[in-house]
Design a protein around this nucleic acid. Structure first.
Length: 514
RNA sequence: GCCCCGUUCGUCUAGUCUGGCCUAGGACGCAAGAUUUUCAUUCUUGAAAUCAGGGGUUCAAAUCCCCUACGGGGUACCA
């Protein structure tokens, strides 16, 4: 029987989570949900020097926004708590167990000594590696006598515990994305498992926790592929090979232009967020934009990220979360890195924005209007939204496409004036105005009727007087909008009403003359 | 340097495992046309990959094998 699917997302709280990490989490989540498994959030904070306050809260808030929930972990608890590695104290014993079994050893070399060694070798164009060929010449429990080691430890000499790789052995493992991957131990160095500060390194903590938390599948970024043989060997050393998780190493997200993996700075430089939420660096105070603050819809972000490096083989592109869960499979994840494309991200958001209910959008639009010192009731705003939303990708595009429903133009686009408001435009408008005033009086406040009649009148009037349709209509548009854009004129007149329509035309005649 | 992973339109990708249906399909973006009194939307059409390059294997290769180039990752008492 297959073990229960249990996967984890294990970020390090060294700053805001970037979208590559978010995608990794999404794949983990989809996989867990597909098999009715568990999704765990574990915080890997074993490097105190890189800890950034606020990062953990940020991560939790980001997933909350994306509507990705954890079954266990920091913030939700669970039977394997604590889920913050800094609060887990069992690692030392596991490291010691490996020393006992001969799979690891104490090493007393200082960082300075090792650094010097690396530099020396580099100067000789050689690669220094702490391994079977060099360990005898270094200060460790393999080269030193038992007494010497005991004395050093008793004297409080700082030490680390290193994994002892067997010489020249092939480590082969199966990767769910890449197939069989093989590394030879002669190219691997004896990685530190336990640091002199009393905390484990990623490798030890990760393997121990994945085992203790009964993780069935490790789905993580490709940057971990080279250290995977160490992890495989650790499972072996602990005697856990039987229930070692399966590995899947995901391709990385690359910069949209040039080369290299997507990094923090790319976003604002290239005009798109790399973080789910806005982030203010607690030290520098630098602010990086977020998807949420940029007006993206969370489900659009999930959909877009899920499709960046995965597809189900069909031509479908818009998926609900349930559809993603249903369709997801690890073996259809692509093997190569993907460049992020802002235009496509906008397109995804456009698709989701169109699906939103008009009154829902209107509710979110209200505060934006208020911030511009404008007031309008929800019904009116809803009507406006229904007319203009299809031209918007984001909530924030609404204003540019609908400002004229809320305030009269203060200026008139010069290019449009030059093109449309010529000859006796003012005279013609004045004449039209007489009829519109009459209509407004007859209709006494029924703007729907007014707009209808005004529209019919304009068409007839233009035909009868043999006027230029484009010229006249656009002069009215110019008067109502201030520019040569906007929705259907009748719709504008209907919403702003007869009084406002007339006022705006009067104003245009007054300002533009002729 | 060394090790590992990768390479199909500008971008994301389908097709590769199980060679022939691929004169390589879709989407984004781009261009043109239609619709609209305008802008946008929408619709239609189009341009866009000699499948990184070179060698094999085969009746047949984007698909299998080898080499090269390029890209990415790793090479820390970081994750």
């Amino acid at each position: 029987m297959q073990p229960k699917v249990r996967v984890r997302f294990a970020p390090s709280p060294t700053g805001p989570l970037h979208i590559g990490g978010v995608r990794t989490a999404i794949y983990n989540y989809l996989y867990a949900k597909k098999f009715n498994g568990d999704f765990i959030l574990r915080i890997e904070d074993t490097d105190q020097t890189r800890f950034v306050s606020g990062a953990e809260d940020y991560i939790i808030e980001a997933f909350k926004w994306l509507n990705i929930t954890f079954d266990e972990g920091v913030g939700v608890g669970g039977i394997h708590a604590p889920y913050r590695q800094s609060e887990r104290t069992m690692y030392r014993n596991f490291a010691l167990e490996l020393v006992e079994k001969g799979w690891a050893y104490y090493a007393f070399d200082t960082p300075q000594e090792l650094d010097d060694l690396r530099k020396q070798n580099e100067a000789l164009k050689r690669n220094f590696q702490y391994d079977s060929t060099t360990r005898q010449g270094l200060r460790n429990s393999l080269s030193l006598s038992k007494e010497a080691v005991e004395d050093l430890i008793a004297a409080g000499e700082p030490y680390v515990i290193r994994f002892c790789f067997p010489a020249d052995t092939d480590v082969v493992f199966n990767d769910l994305v890449r197939g069989e991957v093989k590394f030879n131990t002669s190219l691997l160095d004896d990685k530190v498992l336990y640091k002199s500060d009393g905390l484990p390194t990623y490798h030890l903590a990760n393997v121990v926790d994945d085992h203790l938390m009964e993780i069935s599948h490790v789905i993580r970024g490709e940057e971990w592929l080279p250290s995977c043989p160490l992890h495989v060997m650790l499972y072996k050393a602990f005697g856990w090979s039987e229930d070692m998780p399966q590995f899947a190493h995901l391709p990385l997200l690359l910069k949209p232009e040039g080369s290299g993996k997507l990094s923090k700075r790319d976003g604002d430089r290239l005009g798109f967020p790399v973080f789910p939420l806005q982030w203010s660096d607690p030290k520098s105070g630098d602010v990086s934009s977020g998807y949420r603050e940029s007006g993206y819809i969370p489900q659009a972000v999930v959909n877009m990220l899920a499709l960046l490096g995965w597809n189900d083989g069909t031509e479908k592109e818009i998926y609900s979360m349930d559809e993603l869960i249903e369709a997801f499979s690890i073996d259809r994840i692509s093997k190569h890195g993907a460049k992020f494309d802002v235009a496509k991200a906008k397109w995804f958001n456009h698709q989701y924005f169109q699906k939103l209910a008009d009154d829902q959008i209107a509710k979110d639009y209200l505060p934006i209007l208020n911030s511009k010192g404008l007031n309008a009731d929800l019904d009116y705003v809803t009507s406006v939204v229904s007319l203009v939303k299809e031209r918007c990708d984001f909530l924030n595009d609404l204003w540019d496409n609908s400002y004229y429903f809320f305030k009269a133009p203060e200026t008139y686009d010069e290019k449009v004036v030059a093109k449309r408001w010529k000859d006796d435009a003012g005279k013609q408008m004045a004449e039209i105005l007489i009829h519109l005033r009459q209509m407004a009086e007859t209709e006494c406040g029924d703007d729907v009727l007014f707009a209808q009649n005004a529209d019919t009148f304009l068409h007839n009037h233009i035909t009868e007087q043999q006027l230029n349709m484009g010229q006249i209509m656009n002069c009215i548009r110019l008067a109502l909008v201030g520019e040569g854009k906007g929705v259907n004129l009748a719709d504008i007149m209907r919403l702003i009403g007869s009084g406002e329509t007339i006022r705006r035309i009067e104003k245009a005649i007054e300002v533009l003359g002729r």
